[in-house]
Simulated scan of single mutants.
Amino acid sequence: MTNLNHRLVDVATGQLGVLSREQAHGIGMTDAQLRSRVQSGFLAKSLPNAFRLAGAPPTPLSRLRELLLDVGGDSCASGPTAAALHGFDGYRLREPFDLTVGRGRHVNRIGHRIHTTTDLQPIDRCEVSGIPTMRAARTVIDLARTEAVDCLTAAMDSGLRDGRFTEGSLHRRIVALRRSGRTGVRRLLHTIEGREAIVGAHSWLEREFLRLLSGAGLPRPEPQRVLTRAGDRLVRVDFFFPGTTVVVEVLGYTWHRDKAHLRRDTERLNALVFAGLTPYQYTYEAIVDRPATVVGELRRVLGVVR
Rank of each mutant, 00 (worst) to 15 (best):
T116M: 08
T146K: 08
L152S: 03
L53P: 00
G163T: 07
S214K: 14
I131C: 10
V246W: 02
E196H: 06
L68I: 13
L160E: 04
P122N: 04
L120I: 13
H190R: 15
M134E: 11
G28F: 02
G184D: 03
G102E: 13
Y282C: 02
G252A: 10
D74E: 15
I27A: 04
E22N: 14
R35W: 11
A260D: 12
R290V: 11
P242H: 07
D31G: 13
P58S: 11
D119G: 09
F165S: 01
I174P: 02
N108R: 15
H106R: 15
E22D: 15
R113D: 13
R220F: 00
R233W: 07
A155P: 01
H261S: 13
V247F: 00
H202Q: 14
A136Y: 01
S169R: 06
Y253R: 01
T283C: 07
S169A: 08
S129L: 15
R65Y: 07
T245R: 12
V294C: 04
Y253E: 02
A44L: 09
D232I: 12
R257Y: 06
L68K: 08
F274T: 14
L212S: 00
A286F: 06
S158D: 03
T254H: 07
L188H: 01
G104A: 10
Y282F: 14
N270S: 15
I192Q: 00
A56K: 01
R187D: 08
A144R: 00
R195D: 07
Y282K: 06
S46A: 09
S36K: 14
D98K: 09
T30A: 07
R236G: 07
T254N: 15
R182A: 08
T228M: 04
S46T: 12
M156T: 13
A230G: 09
F88P: 01
P80E: 15
G26P: 05
